[in-house]
Design a protein around this nucleic acid. Structure first.
Lengths: 187, 187
DNA sequence: TTCATTTTTAGACATTTGTCTAGTAGATTA
DNA sequence: TAATCTACTAGACAAATGTCTAAAAATGAA
């Protein structure tokens, strides 16, 4: 069973509604280094990560600056492009082979119109996303790089095992060189 | 006429719906330095800023670290506390005398249930908030302090006129000392 | 106006973080 | 197996940013 199916079952969808929701998604597979979203192209899909890891980044002075990494069992979206239907400022690519259950903005709007409780689900998803990103932004402002690393170590240790350090460094808004310093200091 | 009324009229509400919405809000006034939200207390209201400016901050090592400032004609919310109904991690206080049209989470839920199109409005508000905060977080990761200041100078010059520099510095994630350096370099 | 308070600027120095470079260890491939 | 390749670490130095302090400038109150 797909993870997206389990996800929607767990939050209470069933019967026709569940079927309609699942029909609106389509599974896409990605090889390592495949692009899910490319800078300059409008991203018309969001999705639910079934397997793998997907890196969000921009190219600056020829280097990748990673903003975020989506892992299994979480929603994926290039937020600004998907919501405002404008060309993406960022790239999203597969860090390893993986798959995403994708839903187009068109199908999302269809579900919102046809299934009343889907609106409540979507409101909940947006509210939770807002909380998460707000907290993350707070950390960038009020915590030092070292404190941010320690927080990740404590709250999201799985990220440290899964995501290459170079990308974690960028997510923590430091260089790999400096993350290496922080790690050697803490150990 | 209140600004919140004009706001909801402009996005298409009228008649009974508009009246019901406006009845769900209540105007609160604040003197300079009054608290709108206090750390440790659950913030049960969000609102629409009618007049004034409101500073979001945490106390760290005895100092205020400003995260954000809400100005006129924008929505105000201590997001994490209001949405998850948990004690606030931040303070929000009036930088000058001002007023906010406030709506409780209870009344918000009531409007969501009673006015179908209000859900669409709220989804739009959440999506726009998500875009804004996502872009802001991106800037903290990929831009230098100087680039962030220049971007604010270009895109939000009104903030520079209205908000004390010490708070802008914190929002840009630098010290007032360093913002002063940046400003003298750019001019 | 005058006085007091707050805000902003800036010097001197310390700390943090970045850049450049190189080396090591582990994985992958021919 | 050798030969790459990639990820991670780390030294040396440079640049960015913070801390502490003081003074000037702006603001508000009497």
């Amino acid at each position: 069973m797909s993870k997206v199916k389990k996800y929607f079952e767990d939050i209470g969808f069933s019967g026709d509604d569940l079927q309609k929701i699942l029909n609106a998604f389509e599974l896409q597979t990605f090889k390592k280094n495949d692009f899910v979203v490319e800078e300059g192209k409008t991203s018309r899909y969001m999705g639910f990560v079934e397997t793998g890891m997907f890196q969000y980044y921009v190219i600056q002075d020829g280097e990748e600056r990673t903003n975020y990494v989506s892992i299994e069992n979480t929603f994926f979206a290039s937020v600004l492009s998907f919501i405002s239907e404008t060309p993406s400022l960022e790239n999203v690519k597969a860090l390893v082979d993986g798959s995403i259950s994708m839903i187009s903005r068109t199908n999302l709007k269809m579900l919102l119109n046809e299934i009343p409780t889907f609106k409540d689900f979507y409101i909940g998803l947006l509210e939770a996303s807002l909380c998460g990103i707000d907290a993350s932004r707070y950390d960038l402002i009020v915590l030092t790089a070292e404190q941010r690393y320690e927080k990740m170590l404590k709250n999201e240790p799985h990220l440290l095992q899964q995501i290459p350090l170079q990308h974690l460094a960028s997510m923590l808004a430091v260089t790999p060189r400096h993350l290496s310093r922080i790690r050697s200091k803490i150990r």
